[in-house]
Computed example of a mutant assay.
Amino acid sequence: MNILNKTISVLLVDDDEINNFISIKLIKKAMLNTDITACLNGKFAIDQLIKIQQENPDNLPDYILLDINMPIMNGWEFLDEYTRLNIDPLRKTKVFIISSSVFSNDISRAKSYTIVQDFISKPLNVERIKEIFEVDQQ
């Protein structure tokens, strides 16, 4: 699917501000038309998503890039709450775990969630971002 002409909305959920800065730069390099929102913990992200769902569900993000280890609400708690609240009943949003964890139990746990598309190891790079966003690389 070629989505180069469509604005892609991304919710980046990661407590590392430097990592967010780098990820945003890489996403913008890989994708011209992006609208990226960064949240520093899962609770803030859930609150943002609930607000979007209530006001205009069509504005739910196309992608959520979710870290696992965060304060207040970690990635697992986010996934549980996201699922419990049925924030995206039409499954418009594709959720990816983006983590520096190399533990096989984290990878297995991530894949046990039906809403999680894939587990991606940090650091991100432009090629991997293009794969995530299904961009035709021509």
Results as ranks from 00 to 15, higher is better:
residue 37 T to Q: 13
residue 108 S to Q: 15
residue 31 M to D: 05
residue 31 M to P: 00
residue 63 Y to G: 04
residue 47 D to T: 11
residue 111 K to N: 14
residue 130 K to M: 15
residue 92 K to M: 09
residue 8 I to L: 13
residue 52 I to V: 15
residue 48 Q to A: 11
residue 17 E to S: 10
residue 134 E to D: 14
residue 77 E to R: 11
residue 48 Q to W: 07
residue 125 N to V: 03
residue 107 I to H: 00
residue 21 F to V: 01
residue 52 I to S: 08
residue 84 R to C: 05
residue 10 V to E: 02
residue 83 T to W: 00
residue 133 F to Q: 00
residue 67 D to T: 06
residue 108 S to H: 13
residue 113 Y to G: 11
residue 121 S to H: 09
residue 84 R to A: 14
residue 60 L to K: 08
residue 29 K to T: 13
residue 101 S to Y: 01
residue 7 T to D: 04
residue 62 D to Q: 07
residue 84 R to M: 12
residue 85 L to M: 13
residue 114 T to Y: 12
residue 32 L to P: 04
residue 35 D to P: 02
residue 66 L to K: 08
residue 46 I to D: 00
residue 108 S to F: 12
residue 92 K to P: 05
residue 110 A to T: 08
residue 50 I to L: 12
residue 98 I to G: 02
residue 113 Y to A: 10
residue 62 D to R: 03
residue 9 S to V: 02
residue 22 I to Y: 07
residue 66 L to W: 03
residue 115 I to L: 13
residue 51 K to H: 13
residue 80 D to G: 03
residue 40 L to W: 09
residue 53 Q to I: 05
residue 55 E to P: 06
residue 99 S to H: 05
residue 83 T to K: 12
residue 34 T to P: 06
residue 58 D to W: 04
residue 12 L to V: 02
residue 7 T to E: 14
residue 107 I to M: 10
residue 103 F to N: 15
residue 38 A to P: 06
residue 104 S to F: 11
residue 16 D to Q: 03
residue 86 N to L: 12
residue 59 N to R: 15
residue 110 A to K: 04
residue 90 L to F: 11
residue 99 S to L: 04
residue 69 N to V: 10
